[in-house]
Every structure is written in structure tokens, then in C-alpha cells.
Design a binder for these strands. Structure first.
Length: 294
DNA sequence: CTTATTACCTGGCAGC
DNA sequence: TGCTGCCAGGTAATAA
């Protein structure tokens, strides 16, 4: 591990000691955070370098179901990939190419001989050791962020009535609100744009101004877009790969994101790009009509 | 309090 | 071939 900054809440040495010989007893997700639970009770083998973790998560999931549901409270490690992070399980000899090799910041050595590599070319992501130093402000912030996450749009985390009420209470424009992880957890820039297109809502619409039908369409769109994207193993606009190193194919299904100037799939009007909340925002000016005043 | 901008980093790509 | 400038999956800090 070249740079200790990627691990928050512990020094690289402390982190290694914490994970070495431990078993990954749970694997979960909350919003955009990946959550790992460790079980130190049955120590086995040893890792090297960045740390070692024993056994495979697949079997562990069944072994301790209680921990799985107890999301952040029970988790020991949280990983946020931010823009360009990748977490890849692979055989140790696998060559990911010079760029990703240069940006492999943490490597877990599993006891089946395989590796779990944290790769991040842009260095934005972090590995948080949650039981770590309470005086570390970065860890504190992460814990606060984690506990302040809004509901999951899927998996029964968000009721329609609740969503509608919370939308109505917000004066903010809808796109930044969708990106606000404390409002709803898990939507990023790509999916926010796709959701708004499907719902026929302009990104600048004040959240409270959405009609009942628009709000309902947006609620449905969030759940559908996420479900479809997960089904397609994600959106590899550029270089995203999943845990198995595979690219996702949802990029082929994108209707507005990254399609500036191309015809709207519904009406043929060229897709427009604007900057909203500092993010590239793609929409159909015809299907998503602008609110009264901009 | 809310909202806009900047900072964090590196790399890919279009255009010259 | 370079080189330049722009853009990028996110969010926290800072400014207004």
C-alpha cells in the first residue's frame, strides 16, 4: 500500500492487524457504501501486505444472517468507490493493466488464494475502518454520513406516501435533491438523469411543484432504473467493472445520459446538456418541460 | 439555512 | 505525435 490516506480510522498497520486472520462474515450495502463485517473469533491463516482476510464471503453470508441485516451498526469496514473506484476479486496473477496496477491501493489476501483489490485511479474513494479511532474527524464524518443516509428506494425502504410527503416538503430543485444522499440513498448522476427522463420531469423543477402523477412517475422510475441497472450489472460509461471485473451493460440502455445532441428516444428532439448543481445534466427539452421560471 | 463553487486526483479523449 | 483543455460515476469544505 503506497499511500496510507486510503484507509480512514486506522493506520495501515492497525488496519492490517484488524483484518489479518479475520473472516468476512457479512457483505452488505447501504446507499453507495459497501459494508463488510469481520469475525475474529475463528482465526485462520495470515495475510500479507495490506492485510489478509480468511475464507470466502459467499459461505459466510449464510453463516451469520443476523449480521447481514444489522447493516452499518454491525459492519467493520465501509468502502466508498466514489467516481472511479473498483473492488475486484481475482486470482493473484491477474494483470489489470499498468494504469490499474499503479492505482491498486489496498489488497486483501483471501485464504482461498484469491485477492480482493481496491483500485482507484482518481483517488477519491476510501476504505473506512468503522471501529477505528474516534478522534479521527474523517471517520466521524463518514459515520455521520452513513447514519444520515436516506431510505433505499428499493427493497421496501421507501414507501410511496413517504416519498410524496417528503418531496412536497422540499423547495429544492428536483435533480440536486435526487443526488442528496440524505434524501434518498444510492442515486448518482447517471441514474438521476435517467429517472427524470422516464418520469418526464425537468431537472430544474422545484420538488414541491411536482404533480401527483409526476411524483408517482418519479417514484416508479427510481425503482425501475435501479432494478434494471443492477440487472445489467451496472453502467460502464467508461471503465466501471463489478466485483468480478466485468463491465456492466446498462450504458446501452441510457436514454439521455451522455447522449447530448442525439435524438430523444421518445420524440426525436435533440437531447440537451446543462450544468445543474455542478453536474452535467442531460434531458429532453420537449419531454421534460421546464418550469415557469429558470 | 440554502445554494453555488471549489477542491480533491488522474486519465481519456477531441481538437488542433 | 504531442499538446491543451475539457470532461468524468461523488462528496466535503468553503464561499456567498
Amino acid at each position: 500500500m503506497r499511500n496510507p490516506k486510503f484507509i480512514v480510522g486506522a493506520s495501515p498497520e492497525e488496519f492490517r492487524r484488524a483484518v489479518e486472520g479475520a473472516r468476512i462474515s457479512g457483505l452488505d450495502r447501504r446507499g453507495k457504501f459497501l459494508l463488510l463485517s469481520l469475525d475474529r473469533s475463528s482465526r485462520t491463516v495470515a495475510g500479507r501486505r495490506a492485510g489478509g482476510a480468511a475464507r470466502l464471503p459467499g459461505e459466510a453470508a449464510e453463516a451469520s444472517p443476523a449480521r447481514q441485516t444489522a447493516a452499518p451498526a454491525g459492519a467493520d469496514i465501509a468502502i466508498h468507490l466514489k467516481m472511479a473506484g473498483q473492488l475486484i476479486a481475482c486470482p493473484p496473477e491477474l494483470d489489470l493493466g499498468p494504469t490499474r496496477a499503479r492505482h491498486t491501493h489496498v489488497t486483501f489476501h483471501l485464504d482461498d488464494g484469491s485477492e480482493l483489490r481496491y483500485v482507484d485511479t482518481r483517488h477519491f474513494g476510501r476504505v473506512y475502518y468503522l471501529p477505528g479511532r474516534r478522534d479521527d474527524p474523517a471517520l466521524r464524518r463518514a459515520l455521520e454520513t452513513l447514519s444520515g443516509l436516506g431510505p433505499e428506494p428499493r427493497e421496501g425502504g421507501l414507501e410511496w406516501e413517504d416519498f410524496r410527503a417528503r418531496l412536497k416538503a422540499r423547495g429544492a430543485r428536483i435533480k440536486p435533491l435526487l443526488l442528496d444522499q440524505s434524501f434518498v440513498a444510492g442515486l448518482g448522476n447517471i441514474y438521476a438523469d435517467e429517472c427524470l427522463f422516464r418520469a418526464g420531469v425537468h431537472p430544474l423543477c422545484p420538488a414541491s411543484s411536482l404533480s401527483e402523477a409526476q411524483a408517482r412517475a418519479l417514484y416508479d422510475a427510481m425503482r425501475e432504473v435501479l432494478a434494471e441497472a443492477i440487472d445489467q450489472r451496472g453502467t460502464s460509461v467508461r471503465d466501471y467493472v463489478d466485483g468480478e471485473g466485468r463491465r456492466g451493460s446498462f450504458a446501452e440502455r441510457l436514454r439521455v445520459y451522455g447522449r447530448t445532441g442525439q435524438p430523444c428516444p421518445r420524440c426525436g428532439t435533440p437531447i440537451q446538456r446543462a450544468v445543474v448543481a455542478g453536474r452535467g445534466t442531460h434531458f429532453c427539452p420537449s419531454c421534460q418541460r421546464e418550469p415557469e421560471r429558470s
